[in-house]
Design a protein around this nucleic acid. Structure first.
Length: 293
DNA sequence: CCTATAGCCTGGACGC
DNA sequence: TGCGTCCAGGCTATAG
């Protein structure tokens, strides 16, 4: 389930092979993922060079030599895989999908250092999608996003102003990409545990009547940053599907304190609480009964 | 503007 | 063994 650390891990794995590569030919094996591929998508990529590979929230952005942006969201199970030999249809095999059944896109590339490469996109659940945005056009996915959580724009004052009139649970608010961009279920659960905040607390309860952030909200900002940075250093988290572009898994899942650990003791030293699960907005939240208030 | 809900999609886990 | 059910989850559309 690629959240910010997983998407950034993928970006870092792809960048050395894709930045500077020329797209020679593109094959699509179905009309849509979650949404239809854009009109003329393959032709718009072919014969362009990939100038840069960047990330915004959970989106991968390939900026092409004509200034257009090719955007990918990996959804739940999307994966890019690079192979160093030419496209080998009909097998369409790759590391993440040995049958090739769920490979929906592939591109043959030529890179000045690495030579001929094949980039494939596999996505069993097809919750991912791709978009193409010519220079100067609006991007309806990126434009509404809130600040990156690892940048300076995420700070207690900003969260206080975003939360002060919100009655909804802080768990749900942190998943709202227009408030903070890039967090998903796992890292929200982990960050709230680190900050000692119950996921059911309302946003407004973290803000004083005068609009100042309460101490828990002050703690939340470094909790978010630290959990993301640690996950990034571990190459992300692999539950079932996530793999880096070279097929290696992340290992931050071994450091989860609460996510997926229902019934386990809280790992915080001296806490003695138990991790429980709570359904919020159709999603599982995990928290400690003792050290989160 | 805010909040809540259903739907998209497949595979794996689980109960019988 | 096989079948049905549920769950995972980000994001959008829709309704209130």
């Amino acid at each position: 389930m690629p959240e910010l650390p997983e998407v950034e891990t993928v970006r870092r794995g792809l960048e050395p092979f894709l930045a500077g590569a020329r797209i020679e030919a593109v094959s699509l094996y179905r009309e849509n993922l979650r949404f239809p591929f854009p009109q003329g998508f393959a032709a718009a990529l072919e014969n362009r060079r990939i100038e840069t590979l960047t990330r915004r929230a959970k989106y991968l952005l390939f900026t092409l030599s004509d200034g257009a942006v090719w955007m990918t969201h990996l959804g739940m199970t999307g994966a890019y895989i690079i192979k160093d030999h030419p496209l080998d249809e009909p097998s369409r095999r790759n590391a993440g999908d040995t049958s090739g059944r769920h490979v929906h896109f592939s591109a043959s590339l030529s890179h000045p250092l690495h030579g001929a490469l094949t980039l494939s996109y596999a996505d069993p659940r097809r919750f991912g999608f791709m978009g193409l945005y010519p220079p100067g056009t609006a991007n309806p996915f990126l434009d509404p996003l809130g600040p990156e959580p690892l940048g300076n724009a995420l700070n207690p004052a900003m969260l206080a102003s975003a939360f002060k009139n919100r009655k909804g649970p802080v768990k749900t608010l942190l998943l709202d990409q227009t408030l903070v961009a890039g967090l998903g279920n796992i890292y929200v659960c982990e960050a709230l545990h680190r900050a000692g905040i119950l996921p059911a607390r309302s946003g407004a309860s973290l803000v004083d009547p005068d609009g100042a952030p309460r101490p828990e909200l002050l703690a939340l900002v470094p909790a978010i940053r630290n959990v993301l940075e640690e996950a990034l250093a571990a190459g992300g988290s692999t539950l079932r599907d996530f793999r880096n572009s070279d097929g290696t898994p992340g290992y931050f899942q071994h450091s989860f304190a609460v996510y997926g650990r229902e019934g386990s003791p809280c790992p915080k030293p001296g806490c003695g609480g138990t991790v429980v699960r709570l359904a919020q907005a159709g999603r599982s939240s995990f928290y400690c009964t003792s050290c989160q208030h």
